[in-house]
Design a protein around this nucleic acid. Structure first.
Lengths: 146, 146
DNA sequence: TTAAATTGTTAGGAATGACTAACAAAGTTA
DNA sequence: TAACTTTGTTAGTCATTCCTAACAATTTAA
């Protein structure tokens, strides 16, 4: 049975995953920096993730994902990317905003909504460049545009 | 200066707004039921919203929005509707899922993203029914569809 | 190889936001 | 109007998640 993680833990485990991809090894400091929290906060979170069998960690050592942890992290990361891609490729928003907003909402969308969103991106890209270009022209002509 | 409300307070004030539209008067019990929290929780929240000058409430009385409260609630409510409309009209998701997911993410999207989303809905409806129909056919043909 | 800098940990505590239990007021009905 | 039901409030707790301060281990550099 897969226990549902809180948004908070999803953030931590996703951070571990991303840092591991980039740096090979993951230190408490790295997580602290990425999530903008103090090192003791990271420590507390790690302890919990350890109890849930999602990460391995011993005192003063690196943080590593268990198999289950990696699987879980991947799911979160894929959600993140899907949403970010929607923002970038469909709504044509800049990468930074897209990533930020994706981070915040990635924990909350239902499976069904994620599926449909994924299909919408596919659809949109298949019908590119026409529809895509049409939309760009549409919003650039200024509507709610500030 | 407009003080930023926590997602939690946004939920409460939005609930007050919606109940007021429907019932004319708003009781602690109604809010409790709508948000699925206990009455003491509502009480605590009301006390805080009162301090922020967003609602009026005296012991054993109805809860009412101040002008500032109504303005704030309306903003949240409009965000909610915008997102819900996107889910329903663009992604063609059922109302229930749309409303649920909108509730959860309405607190987290940036202004820019909301604007673009709004424009996208407009675009999509202007180009209806063609694009809209195309998408329905597209996802019904089964891709990630379960 | 010791001193300094960096990183990690522990302990203790604060804010948020929820809960139950117990009681009080208000509203309803017999 | 007295009894019952519903609604509201208060008090006390708990879980989550963050923080700072103080200290400990590790790594780096002189």
């Amino acid at each position: 049975m897969k226990e549902k993680l809180s948004p908070n833990f999803e953030d931590y485990i996703e951070a571990v995953y991303i840092i591991q991809m980039k740096n090979k090894v993951v230190r408490v400091k790295d997580i602290s920096k990425m999530l903008n929290v103090s090192m003791p906060s990271v420590n507390g979170a790690i302890k919990n993730l350890k109890e849930k069998n999602l990460v391995m960690h011993q005192k003063y050592g690196y943080v590593e994902l268990t198999d289950l942890g990696r699987k879980t992290a991947l799911e979160v990361f894929q959600k993140h990317n899907l949403i970010k891609n929607f923002f970038m490729r469909v709504l044509d928003l800049p990468e930074e905003i897209s990533a930020e907003d994706a981070c915040k909402i990635e924990h909350y969308l239902s499976k069904k909504t994620m599926e449909r969103l994924s299909e919408f991106i596919n659809f949109f890209e298949k019908n590119s460049p026409e529809v895509s270009e049409q939309f760009k022209n549409f919003y650039k002509k200024g509507h709610t545009e500030k």
